[in-house]
Amino acid sequence: MGKKRLTMRRKESIYGYIFVLPWIIGFLAFTAGPLVFSFVASFTNYNITSQMDFVGAENYQGLFTEDSLFWTSLWNTLYFVIFSVPLTTIGAIFLSALLNQDIPGMRVFRTLYYLPAVLSGVGVYMLWMQLLDPGTGMVNLVLSWFGIDGPNWLFDPDWTKPSIIFMKLWSVGGSMLLYLASMQGVSKSLYEAAEIDGANTWKKFFHITIPMITPVIFFDVVTSLIGGFQIFQEAYVMSNNGEGGPANSLLFYNLYMWKQAFTNFNMGYAMAMSWILFVIVFILTIFNLKLAPRWVHYEGEEK
């Protein structure tokens, strides 16, 4: 029996596994357990400390049929995702296109627009609460210079979610950096060839720049979609007592889930909620992945 030499292909795949091993170990040790546990516990009345009895699909049934706050929170979250994902994506592309010009002092602008992405968390929310203050805030002050009577922002249920989307737009700098990097990678020769053919700036942008950065757009849409469904902090910090008001207009899905888990101690119920969210996000992501080959262009890909 002669030892069979490993083929190149096999060797490579073994290397591959070795490289992903740390992640797999981490996943199995720290994520997979809680994941499975939460799935099992979502069929119980688990409350962390004293009870864990099997209740069948009662949690799920209760959520869908008896819990009006569940639907409110789901609607609020969908509203946020539907507006914030396209707006921040378009905003970031637009901004990076502007910052991709060759003019003096560009580095200063790039730094300025990236700054909000460095600042983050509660401090920024506090700052925006002051900016958006209806009576004394800067935003309404500026609007008043143009004769616009600004809305009540965080005090008016119709304006609370737009307020948060508006705030999110301010910090598109993070994804802007990704777009900028990929725009810089677009080969100059493509633009030169297009210019010789008489293409104007718009045509170059839509027919060269955009298709060349579609992989990054795809990445950004997928991650911000997932992130959008997980919105929590903004509402927790920016509504009175973290309750998701006024009129439950900021009661996002994760905020409601958190309240169920940690103020009502309905952990099983909250786990059922987290699995519903998981399924929603999972379906959307699969949908995205299936749709991707139709519009995402990878350079060097064989078609």
């Binding site: 199995l28 040790a29 997979a32 357990g33 809680p34 499975v36 546990f37 099992v40 864990m52």
Partner: peptide, 15 residues
């Protein structure tokens, strides 16, 4: 196997 392992793991930190 993964599911089994996970159950064992989650059992450690039980309730």
């Amino acid at each position: 196997l993964i599911a089994g392992l996970a159950l064992i793991l989650s059992g450690c930190s039980g309730f």
